[in-house]
Design a binder for these strands. Structure first.
Ligand SMILES: NC(=O)c1ccc[n+]([C@@H]2O[C@H](COP(=O)([O-])OP(=O)(O)OC[C@H]3O[C@@H](n4cnc5c(N)ncnc54)[C@H](O)[C@@H]3O)[C@@H](O)[C@H]2O)c1
Ligand SMILES: NC(=O)c1ccc[n+]([C@@H]2O[C@H](COP(=O)([O-])OP(=O)(O)OC[C@H]3O[C@@H](n4cnc5c(N)ncnc54)[C@H](O)[C@@H]3O)[C@@H](O)[C@H]2O)c1
Lengths: 214, 214
DNA sequence: TATGTTTTGTGAAAGTTGTAACGATTGGCT
DNA sequence: AGCCAATCGTTACAACTTTCACAAAACATA
């Protein structure tokens, strides 16, 4: 999947530009945006190249017009609706954060097997029992799903999601999901991430120690 | 930072192997491990090459010995201790999941500015007020930190962490952290991830539609 | 208008990651 | 023992990503 990193950063640029435009900024240079995004100016320019928006030398980018281009590139015109699967500790944290934040990409339904949760509204989102999955997915035209259920339930659930029109999955369960190749899956394995940090924090300490020797 | 992906997958292999060894499996082939990890057999062999463990043709890998090699490669001998910064919705989810799970990499202290939380024990982890940060970091020899505070507080906090011996940060705040180059930072930007899924779920649908035309 | 400075867009180089190909080794089988 | 099929480690290659380098464009200034 080409351009994956670039698309990720484009969404970041958009967020940063929204802050800027709210602050009344009209023009921004690549290096200014880069500083806010924590990347290099060249990378910003190269990323923006992908969406075909041309800045002006010396003046930089017109923030409003650039935002419009980003919106055109990144967003589905009618918006996209998201379902949350698994309203446990992680699922609730995600709900609390994402609900009401992005109009064009909003969580419109949650699902959980726990009968205690069925019918309740959590952080403003209706929680359904799992047997309503098919109906709700179709009725709300949901194409994106967040999987935050225990690993043992994830694959079976993914199958049902894909069968009912879901095209992309953000997966927090620490197992790989087998899905057709046209379905996009982003795995977030927090255990892996934490262990990676632990490894490279050690590594970094080592490297600097080694460098001192040379 | 070379080998970043590989190190991530090595931690995954370890988890999978631990499950296998618990089930009594003594030997495993690269393609078996690959299937469980959701990667190719070549990649498994390639990754394991890095740690210098030699399997045997026809018999595969000795699970116990391989685990020992992985442990040797991935773990700090005395273990590593982790601090959690920010015990909000996300922080609590992380605590509930990570507490007591990995002996060699355990969250030993949490911090939050909310006075309601100070002194409480949440999911078995003591929550400290922020002015105890320096003392606790040093007393417990903490080298890894998880940042789950609001974005505005993240940079200042990161500075304090680095000044007190933290070498790696798992950052959930949606801003880049400026830290010395020898400090390892892994950013987890959930908004970016979700938007990426939304984009490529759309893209995938497009591509297949286009392919049908050709 | 000419000149200088800043910034952009982009081709080319470098670096990183994933995939394919293949000789070498092992264990099973006759 | 000799052969075969399976598996491993490794080198070579391909794809993707980031960085470097620089011409062209825009504005300021004289
Ligand atoms: N919390 C974390 O920080 C963390 C870290 C790493 C990985 N994960 C992974 O994320 C997932 C969720 O973690 P969590 O901490 O929220 O777990 P949790 O146990 O708190 O929540 C899981 C929820 O899923 C529901 N559930 C179970 N089976 C279901 C099904 N078939 N369909 C729908 N809902 C179902 C449960 O009722 C529960 O509410 C797990 O796979 C976990 O391994 C979480
Ligand atoms: N919850 C999510 O799903 C989600 C998604 C994307 C990003 N994030 C990011 O993760 C971070 C935490 O999110 P959350 O949902 O848990 O927010 P939250 O508001 O629920 O929790 C933040 C916690 O940090 C504490 N805090 C504030 N300032 C602090 C400081 N200086 N030092 C220590 N603690 C401090 C607050 O008291 C609170 O308990 C935020 O930066 C947020 O942008 C969260």
């Amino acid at each position: 999947m080409a351009l994956e990193r670039t698309v990720g950063r484009l969404t970041l640029y958009r967020r940063l530009l929204n802050e800027q435009v709210a602050g009344g900024v009209e023009n921004l240079r690549s290096h200014q945006l880069a500083a806010r995004a924590g990347v290099t100016a060249v990378q910003v320019r190269r990323d923006l190249m992908q969406i075909g928006y041309d800045g002006s030398p010396k003046r930089g980018y017109d923030v409003k017009k650039l935002l419009e281009s980003l919106r055109h590139f990144l967003d589905e015109p009618g918006g996209q609706r998201v379902a949350l699967l698994g309203v446990g500790n992680l699922g609730r944290a995600l709900l609390s954060y994402f609900i009401g934040r992005r109009p064009h990409l909003s969580i419109v339904a949650a699902f959980d097997t726990d009968p205690q949760l069925s019918g309740r509204v959590i952080y403003g989102c209706r929680c359904h029992p799992l047997d309503e999955l098919e109906d709700v997915l179709k009725a709300q035209d949901i194409t994106v799903a967040i999987v935050a259920v225990p690993a043992v339930a994830a694959q079976e659930l993914a199958d049902r999601l894909v069968q009912n029109g879901v095209k992309g999955i953000l997966n927090f369960a620490p197992i790989p999901l087998a899905v057709p190749s046209e379905i996009f899956v982003e795995n977030i394995d927090l255990t892996m991430s934490l262990e990676k940090v632990a490894y490279f924090s050690r590594e970094a300490a080592c490297e600097t120690a080694c460098e001192r020797k040379n």
